[in-house]
């Protein structure tokens, strides 16, 4: 563990807590894409298949349980909670996210570290996470006034993978044979997808203006 990866995990945890805070306290999911939340639940479900077979550390297992539990409960909240589900705008959240799943699955079958079920599922989860934010970014472009919690949620979610890139650079230089092209390329693509969001987020913070993404 290094400071970049710890900061990345804490930033990721913070993004989940901000979203849970928004949904649980103000009982609203306005501006949140259910499709991105569903994709993330699928990402964790396929990535943490080893949660009961490979024990790495208490920290690792605890964080996996937190991410699994929070992602599935957020999906449940938005779908089934009588008050929260009312603030979900189905007509705006139209990205066909199933179109993301198939290519990621095919790519995982072709490019993986080992052709076993667990490894293919793991590679699938890495590829899927890289594009999981797309429905949310599309929804943000359609959302007139993005509330602060939603903006902070997306910012933290993007920042965590950027910190992971620093972690990979650090590990490359400090550990022998530490090379993981699948996570490196996917993590870079994932972070680049946030580039324009980061720009507008920073601009709105600098000029103290409401966050607005151009349509």
């Amino acid at each position: 563990m290094n400071i970049f990866r710890l900061a990345g995990d804490m930033t990721h945890l913070a993004s989940v807590l901000v979203l849970l805070l928004k949904i649980h306290t103000i009982k609203s999911c306005a501006g949140i894409s259910l499709k991105t939340q569903e994709l993330y639940a699928l990402v964790f479900a396929t990535r943490y298949l080893d949660i009961f077979t490979d024990f790495i550390s208490l920290y690792n297992t605890t964080m996996k349980l937190i991410f699994l539990g929070s992602s599935f409960s957020i999906v449940w909240y938005i779908r089934n909670h009588k008050i929260v589900s009312r603030s979900y705008d189905k007509s705006q959240d139209t990205f066909r996210h199933y179109f993301l799943i198939i290519p990621c699955l095919l790519l995982a079958l072709l490019v993986n570290e080992k052709f076993t079920f667990k490894e293919v599922m793991w590679a699938f989860s890495i590829y899927l996470e890289a594009v999981a934010i797309l429905p949310q970014l599309v929804l943000l472009q359609r959302t007139r006034n993005i509330d602060n919690l939603t903006g902070q949620y997306v910012f933290l979610l993007g920042a965590y993978r950027a910190l992971y890139i620093l972690n990979w650079i650090y590990r490359y230089f400090t550990e022998t044979h530490y090379v993981h092209w699948i996570t490196w390329v996917s993590g870079l693509v994932q972070t680049l997808l946030y580039a324009d969001f980061f720009y507008y987020y920073f601009e709105s913070w600098k000029n103290n203006k409401k966050l607005q993404l151009p349509a």
């Binding site: 990721h12 080893d50 490979d54 790495i56 964080m63 996996k64 992971y164």
Partner: peptide
Amino acid sequence: NSTKDVKDEL
């Protein structure tokens, strides 16, 4: 030595 390449990252 084939240290099982355990995925230690989240």
